[in-house]
Design a protein around this nucleic acid. Structure first.
Length: 917
DNA sequence: GAAGTCACG
DNA sequence: GACGTACGTGACTTCG
């Protein structure tokens, strides 16, 4: 059935003019309404392929201000103010736009657009066509009937009889009478004094129509309303005539001629290029290349190459407004921030880039120059002015912000009071789709997915001594680099977005990783307090001991050498001192690692016993000093007095987080001497640190995932799992068998080999194999789990966690044996380690809301160490916070996954991290 | 920048 | 027959 769309062009441009900011085109002409009108036509073009989309279409315009209504009533529209100055030149452009789309443009002398619309509507309905009037004008709502509706493109809604009933309380056919009674001050339709929409609707609903109301007037209760109705009955009747649409005039063009021909490329392109509507030009290219209707946001066609010269440098408010307006219209925008450094908690904002379509990207410099390199600062917007405009956009719930590693931008912008939401993050999308296949940095993804080679950051700022910060870069180079980043991010997003549902990655992306970003951003901003004096004191102590050991080691070696050089140490031990059993690695260097040195130290008869012991001690102290007590002091942010790590959400293939600058996930704990470093992580006065960790979570998950009843029962009853394993394997529990059992328990999580276990337990490979066999016999589920996991990864190339997170193992198909075996072991471990990561991430996402709900807004989550969360909280909140934290962590798998083992949580508090354990 | 070592889960 | 042998990380040192 034909479906006629009648566009109320005149009505639209007035609405668009008042609703959009005053945009200008590349010639400086005002085009706000024209731009809005053109995007609206595009929107209708998108309806083409839909079931109730248009088959016929026409744009209806007003021809002149004099119509038949002026003959009836000379005051009609007499007081309407003239069209605004900057709208007037846009009327002819509207006609240009309409012609560019090859749409009929209909206007008739003596008739208003509304009348022409009514005539066409009636004629089409009479032939059995469906009709949609593209307008939100209340006068046109009179025409609504079965088969005819209105389409309000600005609010993206269809208006039918229900809408009229809701708004006016009458049927569409009665609407003219309501409008007649209430009048219209703008059009000078008199109506009846004192009757507004409410009264008019009520009267018509009560009496059926205008004549009914007028007839009933004398019987109404005395008062102004009754008097006015009686006195102004003629005004009301005149008004009725004025608001009634003419619908029986001859049609200027027959209906059949309104048939749609499709979107013409050349004239439309010429029109868009004349005005410089870049986003629409890009869209036109997309449509031309992809005749099949593709999802609007994410076309699958090849994008054009990046054109760095097409990027715009935005330095005035009007230009910025233009970008913001388009972003608001289309509902998404790619963004990227440029700053003075890589530490988000201290870098200063230098500029912001944005992209709306491929090659439609800009850079907004905010703090360039000012370090002596420019004679004067280049013209640019102030950060204050730009952020005042961008904050509402970045926080607009209707506009999706797209970034690559948005955590960084969120921290920088968060420090300036801007909270970016909602958002998509292409680094996470890539990770959740392709973990294990390649890295997820933008340059690498651009090369992999877009065959595009990004401008290298170091080519922009230089390297080494002459390296500059981004604020020192001239605006042209800065724009090319920065806008390209936003452009590439947008292009990647268009690739990844449809892949998420297609490849089953939506759940882990939307439910786990994406919501974690603002949580981690907040943790990084909080940081943790470190006691500098304590660290300095430890550094001093270690320094003294290291110096003393150095003297002793050199004496034992018979001369000075660099202890920290594995090569020199190996030569000293195995050549000069003649210690037996040195093993050379593939690079020809003797191994001097902790296993080797401990072996020597444990050998009473070895001449290297003493030196090995002292080197081990020297190594431990050197490590602690250089990596922790010295380095951590340097990491304290002078502005906050705290240490702010950076978490990577995409660093570990299994889905774990990693921590850098500094790494706070490897602070010593296993030895007493290293443990002292944890005492330097402290709470602010009046607060305490709370450490909550999952007890044996990976073994519990293995018990669940491999379905091992004996292990499940042990966890359910709270038994010591390693003792229980020792009992099963060795028939008795003592220190030795428990230790061996613990080693085996961990080994199974990592993909065991007889040689590996043999090395750890200091037994022969055959003995190790016997233990493994016994383990599998006692816990047969483990054998099945390993078999199924390896089989599945060989078949699909990836593993999945309980929550659907994929990790790819391309080396599972390697022809090189040890690569293949390595991939197998990693694949055995990944579902367990990854599920653990999913669970604690879910706990982290829920923790903030749960604490708020419990009335604990001052409990702050600071750190995550794989199976542990560290909080800082007022001492008085500890009792209330503990059960909340425990509950959130223990139930984090639910409801998505129901585990057959309980998740045990251990919680401790103290003035320092060391004391909280 | 690679290799070796070692801190953590 | 030799090789390397437990999963996942990041930081520091030496050295070419």
């Amino acid at each position: 059935m034909p479906h006629l769309y009648l566009v109320d062009g005149s009505g639209y441009i007035f609405r668009a003019y008042h609703r959009l900011p005053p945009l200008t085109n590349i010639h400086g002409e005002p085009v706000g309404a024209v731009y809005g009108y053109t995007t609206m036509l595009w929107k209708l073009a998108d309806e083409l392929h839909k079931a109730d989309g248009p088959t016929h279409m026409a744009v209806i315009l007003d021809k002149s201000s004099k119509t038949f209504r002026n003959d009836l009533y000379d005051q009609y529209k007499a007081h309407r103010p003239p069209a605004p100055e900057d709208l007037v030149p846009q009327f002819p452009m509207i006609r240009d736009a309409t012609r560019a789309f090859s749409l009929p443009c209909i206007e008739t002398e003596g008739l208003e657009a509304d009348d022409i619309i009514a005539c066409y509507a009636k004629a089409a309905l009479a032939q059995g066509w469906a009709v949609t009037i593209v307008s939100a004008d209340k006068d046109l709502m009179q025409l609504i009937e079965p088969g005819l509706d209105l389409y309000d493109t600005m609010n993206n809604r269809r208006l039918g009889a229900e809408h009229v009933r809701e708004k006016f309380g009458v049927e569409p056919a009665q609407l003219g009478d309501v409008l007649a009674l209430m009048g219209d001050s703008v059009d000078n339709v008199p109506g009846v004094t004192g009757v507004g929409p409410k009264t008019a609707s009520k009267l018509i609903a009560e009496h059926g129509d205008l004549e009914g109301v007028l007839a009933a007037a004398p019987t109404m209760k005395a008062g102004k309303l009754r008097d006015n109705l009686i006195a102004q009955a003629d005004n009301a009747r005149l008004s009725k005539v004025l608001v009634t649409l003419k619908c029986d005039e001859p049609l200027p063009q027959p209906l059949d001629e309104l048939e749609l021909q499709g979107i013409p490329d050349a004239p439309l392109r010429a029109f868009l290029e004349h005005h410089g509507f870049k986003s629409l030009i890009a869209k036109l290219s997309a449509v031309a290349d992809a005749p099949v209707a593709a999802p609007k946001a994410v076309p699958t066609e090849q994008d054009p190459p990046c054109e760095h010269d097409s990027y715009e440098t935005v330095v005035d408010e009007a230009a910025l407004d233009r970008w913001i307006t388009i972003a608001r219209h289309q509902g998404w925008i790619a963004i990227d921030t440029e700053t003075t450094g890589i530490d988000a908690t201290r870098a200063e904002l230098v500029g912001i880039s944005m992209a709306l379509h491929p090659n439609l990207a800009c850079y907004v410099p905010l703090a360039h120059g000012g370090s002596g390199l420019f004679a004067e600062k280049p013209v640019q917007l102030s950060a204050e002015v730009a952020l005042a405009k961008l904050k509402p956009l970045f926080e607009d719930p209707g506009v999706l912000k797209i970034g690559h590693n948005l955590k960084y931008d969120m921290i920088v912008l968060g420090r300036l009071g801007v909270n970016v939401a909602p958002f998509d993050d292409t680094i996470l999308m890539s990770f959740d789709l392709d973990a294990g296949l390649h890295g997820h940095g933008m340059d690498e993804l651009a090369a992999t997915h877009l065959s595009h080679s990004c401008i290298a950051f170091k080519d922009v700022v230089g390297v080494g001594k002459s390296q500059r910060t981004f604020n020192e870069i001239d605006l042209d180079a800065a724009t090319r680099y920065a806008a390209e980043d936003a452009d590439v991010t947008l292009r990647l997003w268009r690739r990844f977005k449809p892949r998420l549902p297609a490849e089953g990655a939506t759940r882990v992306y939307e439910m786990v990783d994406r919501p974690l970003v603002p949580v981690i951003a907040q943790m990084e901003r909080h940081g943790i307090k470190v006691d500098r004096e304590r660290l300095a004191q430890l550094s001093g102590e270690f320094s003294g001991q290291i110096g003393a050991l150095e003297v002793e080691i050199h004496a034992l070696a018979g001369g000075p050498f660099t202890i920290g050089s594995p090569k020199q140490l190996g030569d000293v031990l195995f050549e000069r001192m003649g210690i037996k059993g040195g093993r050379k690695g593939k690079s020809g260097v003797y191994s001097t690692d902790v296993n080797e040195l401990e072996r020597i130290a444990a050998d009473r008869d070895s001449p290297g016993k003493d030196i090995a012991t002292k080197v081990l001690e020297w190594r431990q102290l050197s490590k602690l000093k250089s990596t922790y007590t010295d380095a951590l002091q340097a990491q304290i942010n002078p502005a906050t007095g705290r240490v702010h790590t950076s978490y990577s959400l995409t660093g570990a293939q299994t889905g774990r987080l990693s921590s850098t600058d500094p790494n706070l996930q490897n602070i010593p704990i296993r030895t007493e001497i290293g443990r002292q470093i944890r005492d330097a992580f402290v709470a602010e006065p009046g607060n305490v640190l709370l450490a909550a960790d999952y007890s044996q979570i990976e073994l519990r998950l293995a018990a669940h995932m491999a379905d091992v009843p004996a292990l499940r029962e042990a966890f359910a009853s709270g038994a010591d799992i390693h003792s229980m394993t020792a009992q099963e394997l060795f028939g008795e529990v003592n220190r030795d068998t428990r230790g061996r059992a613990k080693t085996i328990n961990f080994a199974i999580l990592y993909g065991i080999s007889r040689w590996g276990l043999a090395g750890r337990l200091d037994v022969t490979a055959d003995e190790a194999q016997a233990m493994i066999d016994r383990y599998f016999d006692r816990f047969p589920g483990i054998r099945n789990y390993i078999a199924q996991t390896t089989e599945s990864v060989r078949e699909t190339g990836y593993t999945t966690t309980l929550f659907g997170r994929k990790t790819h193992f391309p080396r599972i198909a390697s022809k090189v044996q040890h690569e293949r075996q390595g991939a197998e072991r990693a694949a055995i471990n990944a579902p367990i380690q990854g599920t653990c990561a999913d669970i604690i991430k879910r706990a982290m996402v829920r923790m903030g809301p749960a604490l708020l709900e419990a009335g604990l807004p001052n409990v702050r989550m600071l750190l995550q160490v794989h199976d542990e969360l560290v909080f800082e909280l007022p001492e008085g909140d500890v009792a209330a916070a503990k059960p909340v934290i425990e509950r959130v962590m223990a139930t984090a798998a639910q409801p998505a996954v129901t585990l057959s083992v309980p998740l045990g949580i251990e919680i401790g508090t103290g003035l320092s991290w060391g004391a909280a354990h």
